[in-house]
Design a protein around this nucleic acid. Structure first.
Length: 470
RNA sequence: GGCGCCUUGGCGGAGUGGUUACGCAGAGGUCUGCAAAACCUUUUACACCGGUUCAAUUCCGGUAGGCGCCUCCA
C-alpha cells in the first residue's frame, strides 16, 4: 500500500508500513461542529474512511482517531445565539451535541464506518487537561509567551531550537499574503505566531488556567487540540495524518511545531495525506458564493447518499472533483446498475452456469488499485468490469456473496446487504412465467406492471426471468 | 506579490510517444410475444501556437482560459 506524502521532505508516494511494526495509526482532522456538514466536508471523510479501509485490506491492523472541534469562535457565537438563556458552557454543549449527532448521521448515510474510529472531543476533560499541560511545558521551555489576550506559540523560538517551521509549505516573507498581514490584529510578536490559548471574553465559555502566575481562564486555540488528541490516543510519531488540502497550512504546520518543539524527533506523523477540494460548477464552495450543498440537498434532489459516495470515489482524492447535478445523476445510474448486478445473488436459478474464477482476480485488481495511492477510479473500473462480466460468466451465490462483502469492505457501497424480494413477489414472477408459457400476454404484462409498482422490474433471459429493483 | 495545478468526445473522468480506458447519456442493431437487460456497432476527443521526433493528445517552449494555496475553511 502506497500513499502520497505532502511533507516537503517527501512529496512522493510512500509505503504504508506501521512505525511500530504492528498497527498503522491514523489521525483525521474532524469537523468543527457548528452547522451541518457540507458535501465538501463529507468528501474529506469519505477519503479518510476509504484510506482506512484500503490500509486494513492491505493486511495491517489500523487504529483510527478523529476529533470533533467543539470549541472555537463559530461554535461559541452560534451557541450564544441559539441558546441565550443557558450558561455559555451549557449552550456550547447543547449546540455541539446536536451537530455531532447530525454529523455522525451524515457519515453513516454516506457509507462511512463509525465503529472502527475513536472519536475525541476537544472539550473532553482529558483533552483540556492535556492542552494545559502541553502549553505549560511549552511556556517553561520558552516556546510560548503570554500576551494580553492569550498565549502564543513563538515560531522564532522554535526555529532557534534548530527545527524547521515550514515542513509542509515553504514559509517566508514573500508568500505571506497581504490579507494575513492586515489581519494581524492580535497581540503577537510575529505574523505567523499563533494562539495556543485565548483568554475569556464576556459571554464565552471558559476553562480555568493559570500560567506564569497569571489567571488565563479561557479556552484553547484551534491547533493545540489536534496535537494533544493525536498524541494521547496514538502516541508520537504516528503513521498518517489526514485532512483537507486547506488544512496543510497553517493548521498542520502549526500542529507539527507544537508537537515537536519539546521533542528530539521533529516528526509528528510520518505521512501527511491531504485530499483536494470538490468544486461546485467549477468554483470553490463557499458560503459567500452560496454554492455549497449539504447531504439533505442531495437527498431532496432525489439522489441516494451512496451515489454521492460513488461520485467521490470516481475521481482521485488528489484531484479536484467538479460537482454538478448531472454528474451526480450519472453516479446514481451507475449505482443502480451495480445494485441490479448485486441483486443477482438472490437468483441462482438463472445464474449457475460457471465457476466464479474471474471474481478473485477482479477483486485483486481492485485492491491493487486502491493500494496505489488510493486510486479509486481505477479500482471502480475493475468493479464495473466485473459487474459487466457477471451475467456472462455466471454467478455462484455463495462466492458471489463473499465477493460482494469484500467489495463492500473496500468501497462501502453496501452492495452485499441488499435483501431478497418477498415470497409474494416471487410467486408473481412464477405466475407470470406460467402465463407467458401459455402465451397469455395480457396477463403476463399485467403482472409485470404490478411488480413494477412494487419497485421490482423483470426481464426475460435465456435462463429465465431475472428481477432487479427499478 | 509568492507557490502550485488544470484544460481530453454531449457530460464525468482515466491514460499513453505510435496500438486511442471506463462510466453516464444519445443513435442504430441483435435478441424478445412486447419489453427490459445484456451484447454489438456508432457519434472517430485530447484548448491554441510553435519546437523536438520517423511519429505527440502524450516531451519542450510560449499563448489563452480556468482553479487552488499562501487568512477561518474539508
Amino acid at each position: 500500500m502506497k500513499i502520497y506524502n505532502t511533507l516537503l521532505a517527501s512529496r512522493k508516494l510512500e509505503d504504508v508500513a506501521p512505525l511500530d511494526g504492528r498497527t498503522v495509526r491514523i489521525y483525521t482532522c474532524g469537523p468543527t461542529v457548528y452547522d451541518h456538514a457540507h458535501i465538501g466536508n463529507l468528501s474529506s471523510f469519505i477519503f479518510a474512511d476509504t484510506l482506512r479501509r484500503a490500509v486494513a485490506l492491505s493486511g495491517h491492523h489500523v487504529q483510527h482517531v478523529m476529533n470533533y472541534t467543539d470549541v472555537d469562535d463559530k461554535t461559541i457565537r452560534r451557541s450564544r445565539m441559539e441558546f441565550p438563556d443557558d450558561t455559555p458552557e451549557e449552550a456550547l454543549k447543547l449546540l455541539t451535541d446536536r451537530y455531532i449527532g447530525l454529523f455522525n448521521n451524515d457519515l453513516e448515510r454516506i457509507g462511512n464506518e463509525l465503529t472502527p474510529i475513536t472519536f475525541v472531543r476537544a472539550t473532553d476533560a482529558k483533552t483540556i487537561w492535556g492542552m494545559k499541560d502541553l502549553i505549560t511545558k511549552l511556556h517553561e521551555k520558552g516556546f510560548a509567551y503570554i500576551a494580553d489576550d492569550g498565549v502564543y506559540f513563538s515560531i522564532e523560538a522554535y526555529k532557534k531550537s534548530g527545527k524547521t517551521y515550514g515542513q509542509l509549505l515553504a514559509v517566508n516573507a514573500e508568500n505571506t499574503s497581504e490579507a494575513r498581514i492586515q489581519n494581524d490584529e492580535y497581540d503577537k510578536e510575529s505574523v505567523h505566531d499563533f494562539a495556543l490559548w485565548k483568554k475569556q471574553k464576556p459571554g464565552e465559555p471558559a476553562w480555568e488556567f493559570t500560567l506564569g502566575g497569571q489567571d488565563l481562564t479561557g479556552r484553547p486555540g484551534w491547533h493545540i487540540e489536534c496535537s494533544v488528541m493525536s498524541r494521547q490516543e496514538l502516541g508520537q510519531p504516528f503513521d498518517i495524518h489526514t485532512g483537507g488540502i486547506d488544512l496543510t497550512f497553517p493548521h498542520h504546520e502549526n500542529e507539527i511545531a507544537q508537537s515537536t518543539a519539546l521533542e528530539d524527533d521533529p516528526v509528528m506523523a510520518r505521512i501527511f495525506a491531504h485530499n483536494e477540494h470538490i468544486l461546485i460548477d467549477g468554483k470553490k464552495m463557499s458560503k459567500s458564493l452560496k454554492n455549497f450543498y449539504t447531504l439533505e440537498d442531495i437527498i431532496s434532489h432525489g439522489f441516494d447518499p451512496l451515489a454521492f459516495r460513488l461520485k467521490i470515489l470516481q475521481s482521485h482524492y488528489r484531484s479536484q472533483v467538479n460537482f454538478t447535478w448531472e454528474s451526480l445523476e450519472a453516479a446514481q445510474n451507475l449505482l443502480n446498475n451495480l445494485r441490479a448486478w448485486a441483486d443477482q445473488k438472490h437468483q441462482k436459478a438463472a445464474y449457475n452456469k460457471e465457476a466464479s474464477a474471474p471474481y478473485a482476480d477482479g477483486f485483486r485488481a481492485m485492491l491493487a488499485a486502491a493500494g496505489d495511492d488510493l486510486d479509486t477510479p481505477k479500482a471502480l473500473h475493475s468493479l464495473t468490469d466485473l459487474a459487466n462480466k457477471g451475467e456472462a460468466s455466471g454467478v455462484e451465490p455463495e462466492k458471489f456473496q463473499a465477493l460482494l462483502n469484500l467489495i463492500d469492505r473496500l468501497f462501502g457501497l453496501q452492495l452485499g446487504n441488499r435483501p431478497d424480494i418477498t415470497h409474494a413477489q416471487k410467486d408473481l414472477i412464477a405466475e407470470r412465467e406460467q402465463a407467458r408459457t401459455a402465451q397469455e400476454w395480457q396477463k403476463s404484462d399485467d403482472i409485470r406492471d404490478k411488480l413494477k409498482q412494487q419497485g421490482v422490474a423483470v426481464r426475460d433471459t435465456a435462463n429465465g426471468p431475472v428481477w432487479y429493483r427499478a
